[in-house]
Design a protein around this nucleic acid. Structure first.
Length: 412
DNA sequence: GCGACAG
DNA sequence: ATCTTGTCGC
């Protein structure tokens, strides 16, 4: 896939809005733009330096969505069934407090019988130049997802999943092309949209929504179709957690599942349920839950040092999360303690000779990392290394020198 | 008056 | 995305 598409969407600190200038502009009529979005209705964003989105820009994005919609495959691939689902990806973005910065995460889980096991994780730093706009989530999220996809293919192509769960919706969208569909169609992936909130728009308005919300779904696996005024089925509301009559709202929570691409409604729902079947667990399907947890862990670590660190230092945390497993983080932390490094000292100031460890530990862990981040402060590195990811303790990462000094996973 | 919209 | 409260469980 070409990088220009990715760059043009505004990732990597860019905010160029002029893209897809020549994309097909067909006079389709699924849904026109919402009348109340006419002018600057972007005030709800919490970001500080956000560029307002022009009306003409929204029109272009709508045209793009309608164009992609015509290529959406809302049935399973012929010859493919849910039994063929071995690895499944999860995509999610976690946000920093009130800034434009965020962390996008891709995890891959593999079925081991009924259980899902984490086999891959990767995160990228995102500078959200554009404000959140309902109906146009793809603008903010897809560039980061594409970066993650590209890195997965570069560093672990054998772990590419059979399908992806995307935090957001797919067909369940005013132009029937939410971010899950968008990603799936552009990259020919099997995708499913998983939303935690009901989306309302012209054909599926609050009245239809209320009808769905009224439905009680007493048992795990129960579902009710999301049918618009037109009769079109957008997806399903699904009860994905076990029955427990405690919190009036908590365990009753449901997911709004819709086809992203290359799935039928039924299979999409079944795949999500298959990823939720953990006994007594969360109502969030495992791949998305793990991606979410990872993003939160990274933001948590950053929060401890962000007041005194340059934004560039976020990359240290990303690298620690992406490149080091639990064991390696503990080892590095032990080394920092052992040499009694001052908090304000730079990593480059630690001489390898002062470290009493196996040579292999120095060669394959300390030295490569030191070379990667010579000017990180001991204080900052400690904060990154102390990151707790209990859900990933069993996930092993290759040694740094086998990862081309991290290049493959950093997309450099 | 206040509704109302994936993340 | 985020704030909240109450709740259950360890």
């Amino acid at each position: 896939m070409d990088m220009s598409y990715l760059l043009s969407l505004g990732i990597l600190g860019h905010r160029s809005l002029l893209w897809y200038a020549g994309q097909g502009t067909r006079a389709a009529a699924i849904h026109p733009i919402h009348p109340h979005m006419e002018q600057g209705d972007n005030r709800k964003t919490s970001a500080d330096s956000v560029v307002p989105i022009q009306q003409s820009q929204l029109k272009e994005w709508e045209d793009l969505q309608m164009n992609l919609r015509s290529q959406l495959q809302e049935h399973d691939d012929v010859g493919w069934a849910i039994d063929g689902l071995s690895k499944i990806g999860g995509l999610d973005i976690g946000f920093e407090d009130g800034t434009n910065r965020a962390t996008a995460v891709l995890v891959v889980c593999e079925f081991q019988g009924r259980q899902l096991k984490l086999v891959y994780e990767d995160s990228v730093d995102v500078d959200m130049a554009l404000p959140y706009t309902s109906g146009f989530l793809f603008v903010r999220e897809i560039p980061a997802y594409e970066m993650l996809l590209q890195r997965l293919r570069g560093s672990a192509p054998h772990l590419e999943p059979d399908a992806y769960l995307v935090d957001g919706s797919g067909l369940f969208h005013p132009r029937q092309c939410g971010s899950a569909s968008h990603l799936g169609i552009v990259h020919n992936l099997r995708t499913i949209g998983v939303a935690k909130k009901l989306l309302c728009f012209e054909d599926f308005d609050s009245e239809q929504g209320q009808r769905v919300e009224e439905q009680v779904l007493p048992n795990l696996g129960d579902s009710v179709p999301l049918v618009g005024r037109s009769g079109f089925t957008y997806g399903f509301a699904v009860r994905t957690s076990a029955a427990r009559a405690k919190g009036p709202q908590d365990s009753m929570r449901r997911l709004y599942v819709s086809v992203g691409h290359r799935f039928s409604h039924t299979t999409a729902r079944n795949v999500v349920l298959k990823c939720c079947n953990m006994d007594g667990g969360s109502y969030i399907p495992e791949p998305i839950r793990l991606a979410d947890l990872t993003g939160r862990a990274i933001e948590r670590a950053w929060k401890q040092i962000h007041t005194t660190s340059r934004p560039k230092t976020r990359q240290v945390i990303m690298d620690v999360s992406n490149l080091l497993d639990d064991k390696q983080r503990k080892t590095l932390l032990g080394i920092l303690d052992e040499v009694g490094a001052e908090s304000c000292a730079l990593l480059s100031s630690i001489s390898p000779e002062s470290i009493k460890r196996k040579q292999a530990t120095k060669d394959e862990l300390f030295l490569p990392f030191q070379e990667m981040h010579p000017d990180v402060t001991v204080l900052e590195l400690r904060a990154a290394l102390r990151m707790e990811k209990p859900w990933a303790v069993d996930l092993r990462k290759a040694s740094l020198c086998h990862q081309q000094a991290g290049r493959a996973m950093r997309g450099l």
